[in-house]
Write a protein that binds this DNA or RNA. Structure first.
Length: 421
RNA sequence: GAGGCUGUAGCUCAAUGGCGGAGCGCCUGACUGUGGAUCAGGAGGUCGUGGGUUCGACCCCCAUCAGCCUCCCCA
């Protein structure tokens, strides 16, 4: 037992009790996605490296993706994100799809990063996108989906907040305070970091980038302006719509939300754990989704949420359900080696009736078999020894109330079904 | 890539420069066809690894590996 080979760093193991939570999360995601009329899809886990090189920064892909050469000599990538795959899938059927397309997916992804709380190298991600609807209503719907999701999970607006901004608004304001176009990526980066540093540190960091003091002051004022959204028609309408859907409490304007990704163009948003400040999901509007993979450019809006951080937040807030991982409610005992066949036959008959039943796999002491049944959380134990076999009955022992009774073989299935097994 | 913390029984973790411990779990029995409780007994350890200091190291020192956390990064 000493020499257990350890799992690959950053990978995850799901024991049965973890799987109950995982399935539950999947169910919530599926339910919310379908409530808004979205359809599930899935892509390959392996993609050609060049698919990502076309869109994401090539350096990032090479540094943070799992890349290997397959036996045919091709450079293969364990998918680090879904959007390029989605872009290709849309491009392939662009002529036959009815737009706007509403699609969602929940599957595994891999990124070579330093594992820490809320982040692993192997994770599941919910991706949901509306493609081919360029207006602000689609943006509002996407934000509404995330809010509805939190509402469904029992997370209150004072626990999670969806912070919203608009890149074209920011571009306009940045131009007004004299930021030249070529410095925009640098300023975006600066804005993105504002929440991660204290004001003096951030200003010191900002000076290093060569930004003038005057511009920096104006930028600071901009980022702290809680009313800035009023200057954006889109944001104004989005907030009206979210209020109309009674989800406005989850949503707040924040000029500091800009998102790292270069391809976002309009609305951007990010949901955060209010207390921890950790980012739970993020998304926004992007143009030219399928242009890079050979289709006609089409606008989309979507977001992605990893399963690791949401589970951390749910656990912290006590919002995870308590689910039992009980394997089967019925355990059939084996009295002695000669009785094995009879017990096996009895168990098989129950399974034919659609009831999950465990056959104890050896003729151990009854004591031990009962203890095992108790440990795995079984509801009833069926005792089927020589006495019962001869009389054509089964002793049904109810573990929850310590009672037992004798039931003729012919009505056993009925009796058990009556007990909701 | 940088920093911090932790490595002792299957699990969670104590303690001490001089006999390796507890709780839980596991096995056996009390109880040969009746579970959760109780009692008794038992198994289980290269104290992460390698070196050093010392009469003597699980403990102190150095190195190394692993895990966790934070920063960086985050398509």
């Amino acid at each position: 037992m000493k020499e257990v080979i350890q799992k690959v760093k950053g990978t995850r193991e799901f024991y049965p009790e973890d799987m109950t939570i995982h399935h539950w999360l999947y169910e919530q995601i599926r339910a919310v996605s379908e409530l808004f009329g979205y359809q599930e899809y899935e892509g390959p886990y392996l993609e050609k490296l060049e698919l990502y090189a076309a869109k994401s920064g090539e350096e990032l892909v090479k540094e943070q993706s799992y890349v290997f050469t397959d036996r045919g000599g091709g450079e293969i990538c364990l998918r680090p994100e879904l959007t390029p795959t989605l872009a290709r899938m849309v491009a392939q059927r662009q002529q036959s799809f009815a737009f706007p397309l509403r699609l969602w997916s929940f599957g595994p992804f891999w990124r070579y990063e330093q594992p820490q709380k809320g982040r692993s190298r192997e994770f599941f991600q919910w991706n949901i996108d509306m493609i081919g609807a360029p207006g602000y209503m689609a943006d509002a719907e996407m934000i509404a989906i995330s809010a509805q999701f939190f509402k469904r999970l029992g997370l209150a607006p004072d626990q999670v907040q969806i912070l919203v901004n608009n890149r074209s608004l920011m571009d306009r304001k940045l131009a007004e305070i004299g930021v030249p176009e070529e410095r925009k990526p640098l300023i975006y980066r600066l804005i993105d970091r504002r929440d991660k540093m204290r004001e003096p540190e951030w200003k010191a960091y900002a000076s290093e980038t060569g930004i003038e003091t005057e511009t920096l002051d104006k930028l600071s004022a901009l980022l702290n302006d809680a009313q800035l959204w009023r200057e954006s028609e889109e944001l104004t309408q989005i907030f009206v719509l979210l209020d109309a859907m009674d989800l406005g409490a989850y949503v707040k304007f924040d000029a500091k939300i800009i998102r790292g990704l270069l391809y976002y163009t309009g609305t951007v948003f990010e949901a955060k754990d209010v207390e921890g400040g950790r980012s739970i999901l993020g998304g926004g509007r992007y143009e030219n989704l399928v242009g890079d993979v050979g289709g006609d450019p089409v606008s989309g809006v979507g977001f992605a949420m990893g399963d690791v951080m949401i589970k951390v937040v749910l656990e912290k807030l006590g919002a995870l359900p308590i689910l039992d991982a009980q394997p089967a409610k019925i355990v059939v005992t084996v009295f002695d080696p000669q009785g094995m066949k009879a017990s096996a036959c009895l168990t098989a008959a129950l399974r034919d009736q659609g009831m999950a039943a465990i056959l104890y796999p050896e003729a151990a002491k009854l004591n031990k078999q009962l203890k095992y049944a108790d440990r795995i959380g079984a509801k009833v134990v069926l005792l089927y020894g020589p006495d019962e076999v001869e009389a054509g009955v089964v002793t049904v022992k109810d573990l929850s109330n310590r009672t037992q009774r004798t039931v003729p073989l012919g009505v056993l299935a009925e009796e058990l079904k009556a007990m909701d097994l």
